[in-house]
Amino acid sequence: MTVRCPSPLLTGLALLLLGGTGAAPAATYTNPVIDEDFPDPFILRVGKAYYAYGTNAGGLDVPVRRSSDLVHWTFVGDALGGLGAWASGGFTWAPEVARTPKGYVLYYTARHTASGRQCIGAAFSANPEGPFRDASAAPLVCQLDLGGSIDASPFTDRDGQRYLYWKNDGNCCNQPTALWGQKLSADGLKLVGQPKDLLYNGALWEGNLIEAPQVYTRANKYYLFYSASDYNSDLYGVGYALGMSPLGPFRKQTRDGAWLATKGKVAGPGGQGVITDGKGNTWLYYHAWTTGQVGYGSGGARSLRLDPLKFVNGLPMLKGPSVTAQPAPAKP
């Protein structure tokens, strides 16, 4: 791609309309911030830039975009430079990335060729944009007796210890689903010790599955956010559990209904994560359908959205889901 310097005639307004990392800071924004299919998002902050990774779409295994303000996003390309030898293409889901002393590790879900189940791999790159490459002959996590493993999410605690969370894919084959956690090595490429089952589906609103775990810590508490129910419907939503250590025990705080659920023009929110802006304010990002265009085949898309996340007396409070203009995140 050839890059040319902008003409002096390009005004700040024109740059704002173009979007991307060169856009002027936005005073306000309106959801969605990526108004196209970008499911299972994960956002990583690196210095003054943010990188968003999503489930395979448009022929790409892991589409990645870059932003300077969480509002305007520039398409970068495919972050994954090649699946592991154990995997088949076309089913690359829910990527998340961890920064390590030697570079970046991308955890991704892909089809395990030998079994036909979904399993989790780890790919490495020196750069957050990739290309990430998985040199492993076998997946990192692959609970074949429990239906497979998906939705890996890394977390680094305050003491530097790394953890990986995921879901066993039991709903693929009439088995229970659970969220799991296990320690990781310092380079993020190997599991340490034994896995621990943390939560199971069981609440009425969760349907036959819980998935998409992500842990966030604040004031010595650990918040395990997760999605549940049918992603392809307006029943999908976000719940959370609370614990006092990275591996729990965790207690569900959302047994009677989803914490973030379908409301107004926003349907089936999920695939959530927490990110901080330039002033340290917390935001929840997530994908969602537009009401009336729910499910593949409807013409709809799971677009990327974000809303301010506050903590009141130790409980997460979300200003959303929103569809009107509101103050934008602060740039790093």
Results as ranks from 00 to 15, higher is better:
residue 6 P to K: 06
residue 6 P to I: 13
residue 8 P to V: 11
residue 9 L to T: 12
residue 11 T to M: 04
residue 13 L to M: 11
residue 14 A to H: 14
residue 15 L to R: 15
residue 17 L to M: 12
residue 18 L to K: 15
residue 21 T to L: 07
residue 22 G to M: 13
residue 23 A to I: 09
residue 23 A to T: 03
residue 25 P to Y: 07
residue 28 T to V: 11
residue 30 T to E: 08
residue 32 P to L: 14
residue 36 E to R: 15
residue 38 F to C: 12
residue 42 F to I: 02
residue 42 F to Q: 12
residue 42 F to C: 13
residue 48 K to V: 08
residue 49 A to K: 12
residue 51 Y to A: 09
residue 53 Y to P: 03
residue 54 G to E: 01
residue 54 G to V: 09
residue 55 T to Y: 00
residue 60 L to P: 00
residue 61 D to P: 00
residue 67 S to F: 01
residue 67 S to T: 07
residue 68 S to G: 14
residue 68 S to E: 12
residue 69 D to I: 07
residue 71 V to H: 03
residue 75 F to Y: 12
residue 77 G to M: 02
residue 78 D to V: 04
residue 81 G to S: 02
residue 82 G to D: 08
residue 85 A to G: 05
residue 97 V to E: 08
residue 100 T to W: 02
residue 100 T to M: 03
residue 102 K to H: 11
residue 102 K to I: 04
residue 106 L to V: 06
residue 108 Y to E: 02
residue 115 S to T: 15
residue 116 G to T: 06
residue 116 G to E: 07
residue 119 C to I: 02
residue 120 I to P: 02
residue 138 A to G: 02
residue 141 V to W: 01
residue 143 Q to L: 13
residue 148 G to S: 11
residue 150 I to L: 14
residue 153 S to A: 14
residue 155 F to E: 07
residue 156 T to M: 04
residue 161 Q to W: 05
residue 166 W to E: 13
residue 170 G to Y: 04
residue 171 N to T: 01
residue 175 Q to D: 08
residue 177 T to R: 05
residue 180 W to I: 15
residue 188 G to Q: 02
residue 189 L to K: 08
residue 193 G to R: 09
residue 194 Q to D: 15
residue 197 D to K: 15
residue 198 L to Q: 13
residue 200 Y to W: 12
residue 206 E to P: 06
residue 207 G to E: 06
residue 209 L to G: 03
residue 209 L to T: 14
residue 215 V to K: 06
residue 215 V to T: 02
residue 217 T to I: 03
residue 220 N to E: 14
residue 223 Y to C: 12
residue 229 S to A: 15
residue 231 Y to V: 11
residue 234 D to A: 15
residue 235 L to T: 15
residue 239 G to F: 04
residue 240 Y to C: 00
residue 250 F to H: 01
residue 253 Q to G: 03
residue 254 T to G: 10
residue 255 R to T: 04
residue 258 A to R: 00
residue 258 A to Q: 00
residue 262 T to G: 01
residue 264 G to L: 06
residue 265 K to W: 07
residue 266 V to L: 07
residue 270 G to Q: 07
residue 271 G to V: 07
residue 274 V to E: 08
residue 274 V to L: 10
residue 280 G to C: 02
residue 282 T to G: 01
residue 283 W to G: 12
residue 287 H to E: 10
residue 306 L to I: 13
residue 310 K to E: 06
residue 311 F to L: 07
residue 314 G to P: 04
residue 316 P to C: 10
residue 317 M to P: 00
residue 319 K to P: 00
residue 323 V to I: 12
residue 326 Q to L: 14
residue 327 P to I: 03
residue 331 K to Q: 15
